[in-house]
Design a protein around this nucleic acid. Structure first.
Length: 474
RNA sequence: GGCGGGGUAGCCAAGUGGUAAGGUCGCGGUCUGCAAAACCGCUAUUCGCGGGUUCGAUUCCCGCCCCCGCCUCCA
């Protein structure tokens, strides 16, 4: 039951061996949002993958110390604040809040820490790291007053992305200050202040300015997790240059291997293309909620596909998620009803008791194979439903299955929130319908069922009377 | 051009050197006043294409095609 992860660094599945196996303590760093606008659901796919990772590690008994940074200063946030005519702090604050709201909607477990790049504590750390890099000859201040990392002095640069530096081509996406840098691939550690930055600036030995994006993660990761961390995650688009740069900076300063396992998740696609702000083809969490879907439905839709496989977002997929969850909800409801029976007639339980069942966790051990894990869940659902149909599942077994569910749901977290209260008018209609049915007035009964359905509720006639189910429980 | 990821049923998606999990959708059946839910059955002779290795390949090897991404501040 050792875990295996696909390590981007080696491009291979590796056995997971934490640095501190005795205490089962693990440091995990996850790249968080840049708060210049509301994060889209593609961003959240990455955070959900990291959530799954953390929850599974915890299910396996590891104590996870997870850090997620928030980038609250960069070109885009500065531009946004300027255009909005408000201070940077005020501008970013709204998107920080939105991020936490959306994360909560998606039931993403909070990281232990959410360091912000503008925190003076980390600015100081960044300045110290840059100073160390300069003294080691790994960085230099150019004529434009900015400080750059000298990639030619770091032999391993390009190893994570498997890039041959001589082959680097500009995509034209980013402007290069080619006159100032020694090498086109040298990246900014400290960006010298210019007029467009307004009052956004910090003092440093190299003059006023602000940190580069990459150094911020190196500083916060090492400040909070130490020089060496077990797992570092992000989207595949972070591999280069961001994570490559983080390695160069961190290892350049400490001389120690920065990260044990690099895990990257594939993109969320729309119409077969990457979901991105720049392409304008994105949805936010509120967009999806506005279509009538719930947070847990979106969570499930983003969670159910293996993290290294590109996932095409569609409304059909959202419906599949809804139906799959309804199946789980229904199953849980039946199990609870059976578990409550005091003296169910003793019958031979032919449904295996799940106490020893570990297929679900074992599947997740294998590089978070969620599809296989869910496959086992649904097989179990069919198996126990069959047993309940045949009245062959005794209350003890039902309780066992509920315990099993509780365990795996610490990873999935897709159970509906507390029972939704039936609105009085729906209850009234249901009551009338019961009366109509007693009088065998089927026409009236069906009309009432229609009305109830129009209000978003489903009525089902069972042996024990009618039951109401709200559609799309949150 | 370089470096990755992916191509399995209408759609989504696991998987193994021995003949294809699961979800969703559709169809038929059991149950039901009718439904719904649940269960049962059907739905890929086939896993992008072409070779090769093998008794046997979707799985290993070689070549090719297609889709997506990264190539210096995108999760």
């Amino acid at each position: 039951m050792t875990m295996r992860f696909f390590n981007t660094y080696s491009r291979q599945i590796e056995q997971f061996e934490p640095r501190n196996p005795a205490e089962r303590a693990i440091g995990v760093y996850t790249c968080g949002p840049t708060v210049y606008s509301r994060a889209h659901i593609g961003n959240f796919r990455a955070y959900i993958f990291e959530d799954l990772l953390q929850r599974h590690l915890e299910l396996r008994g590891y104590k996870v110390h997870r850090v997620m940074n928030i980038t609250d200063v960069d070109d885009k946030t500065i531009r946004g604040a300027r255009e909005a005519g408000i201070p940077l702090v005020k501008f970013t604050e709204q998107f920080k809040q939105a991020f936490f709201e959306d994360a909560e909607t998606l039931r993403i477990k909070r990281a232990d820490e959410f360091p912000c790049a503008t925190d003076q504590r980390y600015i100081d750390k960044m300045i110290a790291m840059i100073g160390a890099l300069i003294s080691k000859g790994l960085a230099y201040q150019a004529d434009d007053k900015s400080v750059y990392f000298r990639i030619n002095k770091f032999p391993n640069y390009g190893k994570l992305a498997h890039f041959d530096l001589t082959q680097l081509q500009s995509t034209g996406r980013v402007k290069h200050d080619e006159y100032d840098k020694e090498h086109i691939g040298d990246f900014a550690l400290w960006k010298a202040w210019d007029e467009e930055d307004g009052d956004v600036k910090w003092d440093s030995p190299w003059g006023p300015g602000r940190p580069g994006w990459h150094i911020e993660c190196s500083a916060m990761a090492t400040a909070l997790l130490g020089d060496q961390i077990d797992i570092h995650c992000g989207g595949v688009d972070n591999i280069f240059p961001h994570h490559e740069a983080e390695i160069a900076q961190s290892e350049g300063v400490t001389g120690k291997k920065f990260v044990g396992y690099w895990l990257h998740c594939a993109h969320l696609l729309v119409d077969g293309q990457k979901m991105a702000k720049s392409l304008g083809n994105f949805y936010t969490v509120p967009d999806v909620l506005a279509k009538g879907y719930t947070g847990r439905e979106l969570r499930y839709a983003l969670l159910r596909v293996h993290y290294r496989v590109p996932l095409n977002f569609t409304w059909e997929g959202m419906n599949e998620a809804r139906e799959s969850l309804a199946r789980i909800d229904e199953w849980l409801g039946r199990l609870r009803a059976v578990a409550k029976k005091e003296n169910a007639q003793r019958s031979t339980p032919n449904a295996q008791r799940p106490i020893e069942k570990s297929d679900f966790e074992n599947a997740l051990d294998d590089d978070l194979n969620i599809s296989a894990a869910l496959g086992f869940l649904f097989e179990s659902i069919r198996e126990t439903n069959r047993a309940m149909d045949e009245n062959k599942l005794d209350p003890g077994a039902a309780k066992g299955w509920l315990d099993w569910w509780q365990r795996i749901n610490t990873v999935l977290d897709v159970e509906p929130q507390a029972e939704v209260v039936v609105p009085p008018e729906v209850a009234q209609l249901a009551n009338e319908r019961e009366n109509a049915r007693r009088e065998r007035n089927w026409k009236r009964s069906d009309e009432l069922r229609e009305q109830i359905s129009a209000l978003g509720w489903e009525v089902r006639d069972t042996k024990d009377g009618s039951r109401l189910t709200g559609r799309g429980a949150s």
